Amino acid sequence: MSAEAIAALPSIATAVQETTPNAFSGAAATGGAAGVPGFGDLVTQGLNHVNQQLMVSQTDLQQLSVGNVQNLHQIMIRLEESRMSFQLMMQVRSRLLEAYQDVMKMQL
């Protein structure tokens, strides 16, 4: 996990604590008037971050394949970071899908 992802954790916790009981209203879902990013915004930012890491890793692999490498250790570290970020994203997706399915199974 990168330092930026770790630094974002307190802001995510603050955003969760500041949500109102009516968390499914339009204002809370889009960030509301308080300027707190909504859940959709956080997911979009996370996906963009993972995509950026994967693109950098792909570029690093292309540079490695042609032999244009300055620091092999840094490339391997970035590859591992992108792999772990992707795995984390897939775990979050699985948990969200399970939660959605549980909600859909509830009776009114």
Rank of each mutant, 00 (worst) to 15 (best):
V56H: 06
T14E: 13
N48L: 13
H73Y: 15
L108G: 12
G40N: 08
A29F: 01
R95M: 15
G38K: 03
S85G: 12
T20Q: 12
G31F: 00
Q87K: 13
I6R: 09
T44I: 10
V43H: 11
G40W: 04
A13H: 14
G35P: 01
H49E: 08
T20W: 06
L61H: 01
L96D: 02
M106P: 00
L72H: 07
G67V: 01
M106T: 10
V56P: 01
V36K: 07
V56Q: 07
L88K: 10
L64D: 04
Q52I: 02
T14H: 04
A99K: 12
H49A: 10
Q17P: 00
L47M: 13
M89A: 13
Q63V: 03
R93V: 06
L64S: 04
N51Y: 03
G46A: 10
L42M: 15
N68Y: 02
D41P: 04
V92G: 12
N51S: 10
D41Y: 14
V69F: 03
A15I: 07
S85M: 08
Q45T: 13
S82P: 03
T20C: 03
D60N: 15
A23I: 01
I75C: 00
Q52W: 04
R95N: 14
T44P: 06
Y100C: 11
M89R: 05
Q17D: 07
A27E: 13
N22E: 06
R93P: 02
S85W: 01
E4V: 14
I77F: 08
M76H: 05
H73M: 13
A27N: 09
D60G: 04
K105M: 10
I12Q: 07
G38C: 12
A23V: 04
V69H: 04
R93Q: 12
V43L: 12
E4M: 11
V92E: 14
M90D: 09
I75H: 00
S25D: 04
Q58I: 00
F86Y: 15
L64G: 02
I77Q: 12
S2L: 03
H49T: 12
E80H: 10
E80K: 14
Q45F: 15
F39A: 14
F24P: 00
T30V: 09
Q45V: 13
M1F: 09
A7F: 01
Q87P: 05
F39Y: 13
E18S: 08
E18F: 09
N51V: 01
I77N: 07
M106R: 06
T19Q: 07
Y100I: 13
L79G: 02
S94Q: 14
L61N: 01
R78K: 11
N51K: 07
M104W: 03
